[in-house]
Design a protein around this nucleic acid. Structure first.
Ligand SMILES: [Zn+2]
Ligand SMILES: [Zn+2]
Ligand SMILES: [Zn+2]
Ligand SMILES: [Zn+2]
Ligand SMILES: [Zn+2]
Ligand SMILES: [Zn+2]
Length: 561
DNA sequence: GAGTTTGAAACT
DNA sequence: CAGTTTCAAACTC
């Protein structure tokens, strides 16, 4: 059997038989090149949303501050340009709503990779994106039409323009041999990006030329699992907490909605999605022997209750908490304060404080923090989005992204796919359910550090946070090279789904907002530097990030413990 | 770079 | 919904 041969030759049909149905309508016609988004086929919708705007991240990024939406500047629509990061953005943009921000951060640097990105998108009606640039490098990317991400899940990455050294631009690259990049196994596909040069995939159909196929496939997958492309991480944003903290939210971490199921890695390696996303495990995780440096699931619970990690530290009895605490935020608040302090630091990237690990509370607080607060402008859009909810075909979704801060950028981390959304939005949607997604990039270079310094995460706020929302209705796609993202459209469903779910059981934390997609890692391991110097960025990848120095081994969780 | 390990996606 | 297979990445050497 030659698998390869099969793949190559075959057409996507194999994978999806459906494609032909719909998509052809129009979509094919549009090409990403010029238009990125598109996809219309299905409706288009996705991208272009009606009302307002559809901007995409790019636009936002470019403009940034203002943006936020509102303006969008000119291009909004067209737009989908790419984005890039800018510092200013962060500053300016606060993001939206509130929500989110980011978190992650990482202390170390990776040096090379960095990129971060940011981006955000919006989709449905409006969206904004913001980006934050990485630290040093910040740069902007241009906007050309070549790239954009539009999708909901996107994650961004950043890149810099120039950098002499390495750089890469994007990191996203896959090496799919059998899936033609039309299944979730493919990072590119899963992230909503088209495969680009850096990809070493064989028989790839995840390209603009096959837009219809891609969209169609995506839809199919979505049909089965509405949450398939939905952001997996949710941030918990409790306004409550935030208030206490004083500022807004804390971005730090988010939680996976689904949770991980690690049996052997103890959540200490990137095999764990939670770890990869730079977030701690939560009660929804089914991991065995969890030692996630960002926070163990048990701790999480405890935290919520108000206990410090220490209390929980042992593995013992924490489980009980899980069930219970579900909503205690108060405890968190306390912690938040602590964290808060650290957070406040301006840039600290260095985290260092080992005090807590990952408190949820922090996150919240940060999130809320002021940085983000946006102006009312955002609200509007959001609202609209909400109302409209629209979407075209399938559903809509909203996401917010926040990229990382500069700091993060430096490192290069990113999240997989995260989308951040704000709480507010959620409120609008469904109060309890969260539908928000956030994305951020995180850096992840060293998790441990973060853990230690819980604050680290918090700190993110610095300026960097950029976030943006995105809603995406239909499907949007982006290619990396060109980067076309597609947006997915889960939206509505999210609300329903999530709401339901959350309540049901996985997410006890109703308060959290959703976040992102998957997570993200920072960088792929290898980076090839593509030639993309121009703009590209990419977002997320499933696994990839530079390994921490120390943590090579699973067991080493020395630090924390 | 090849080979092993890992956990999610996909399939049954 | 659970069990198994498939898959590509993370990791190891
Ligand atoms: Zn692929
Ligand atoms: Zn690819
Ligand atoms: Zn591909
Ligand atoms: Zn795990
Ligand atoms: Zn987990
Ligand atoms: Zn775990």
């Amino acid at each position: 059997m030659n698998a390869e041969s099969e793949s190559l030759e075959s057409s996507p049909a194999d994978l999806n038989a459906t494609s032909s149905n719909r998509k052809m309508d129009q979509l094919s016609q549009f090409r990403p090149n010029s238009f990125p988004l598109q996809y219309s086929g299905t409706s288009s919708l996705s991208v272009s949303r009606p009302s307002a705007i559809g901007f995409h991240l790019n636009s936002i990024f470019n403009t940034v501050p203002i943006t936020c939406g509102a303006t969008a500047n000119t291009k909004l629509e067209e737009d989908y340009m790419s984005v890039q990061g800018m510092e200013s953005a962060s500053a300016c943009c606060p993001i939206s709503s509130n929500a989110v921000d980011k978190f992650s951060f990482i202390p170390k640097n990776v040096g090379d990779k960095s990129k971060a990105l940011i981006a955000a998108n919006f989709a449905s009606s409006e969206s904004l994106h913001i980006t934050a640039p990485p630290n040093d490098k910040s740069k902007i990317i241009s906007e050309q039409t070549d790239n954009f991400e539009y999708s909901r899940r996107t994650s961004p990455k950043t890149k810099r323009t120039k950098t002499p050294s390495t750089n890469d631009g994007d990191d996203r690259r896959c090496n799919c041999k059998k899936t033609k990049c039309l299944k979730l196994y493919c990072d590119c596909f899963a992230a909503g990006f088209y495969c680009a040069e850096p990809c070493a995939c064989q028989g790839c159909f995840n390209r603009p030329d096959y837009e219809d196929t891609v969209l169609d496939t995506r839809e199919q997958i979505e049909s089965r699992n509405p949450l398939a492309f939905a952001p997996r991480i949710v941030q918990r944003v409790n306004e409550f907490n935030s208030m206490e903290n004083g500022n807004r939210a804390t971005p730090s971490s988010g939680r996976h909605k689904r949770g991980c199921n690690c049996k052997k890695s103890m959540c200490l390696k990137k095999y764990c999605e939670c770890y990869q996303a730079n977030i701690g495990c939560s009660s929804g995780c089914r991991c065995d022997g969890c030692k996630n440096v960002y926070g163990r699931k048990e701790e999480c619970a405890a935290t919520v209750l108000g206990m410090n990690k220490e209390m929980v530290s042992d593995e013992i009895g924490k489980e009980r908490f899980d069930g219970i605490f579900g909503k205690n935020l108060e405890g968190m608040a306390n912690k938040a304060d602590l964290l808060h302090a650290e957070l406040y630091d301006p840039h600290n990237i260095t985290p260092l404080t080992p005090a807590f690990q990952y408190p949820e509370s922090e996150s919240k607080s940060q999130i809320v923090s002021r940085s983000y607060l946006p102006s009312p402008e955002f609200d509007s859009p959001l609202s609209s989005y909400v109302d409209s909810s629209k979407t075209s075909r399938t559903s809509n979704s909203i996401d917010l992204l926040l990229p990382a801060n500069k700091e993060s950028l430096s490192l290069g981390s990113y999240d997989w796919r995260l989308d951040y959304t704000n709480m507010e939005m959620m409120d609008q949607f469904s109060p309890e359910s969260d539908t928000i997604a956030l994305s951020h990039l995180t850096s992840l270079s060293d998790p441990p550090f973060m853990a230690m310094a819980s604050s680290t995460s918090s700190k993110t706020r610095d300026s960097a946070n950029s976030s943006h929302f995105q809603l995406s209705p239909g499907t949007g796609y982006v290619s990396s090279a060109g980067f076309h993202h597609w947006c997915s459209s889960p939206i509505t469903p999210m609300t329903s789904l999530e709401g339901t779910k959350s309540h049901q059981g996985l997410d006890p934390d109703s308060e959290f907002c959703d976040i992102l997609d998957y997570g993200a890692p920072d960088i792929p391991r290898d980076r090839a530097t593509p030639s993309i110097n121009q703009l590209k960025f990419v977002p997320q990848i499933r696994r990839g990030s530079p390994p921490p120095s120390h943590l090579n081994k699973l067991g080493s969780s020395s630090s924390g413990a």
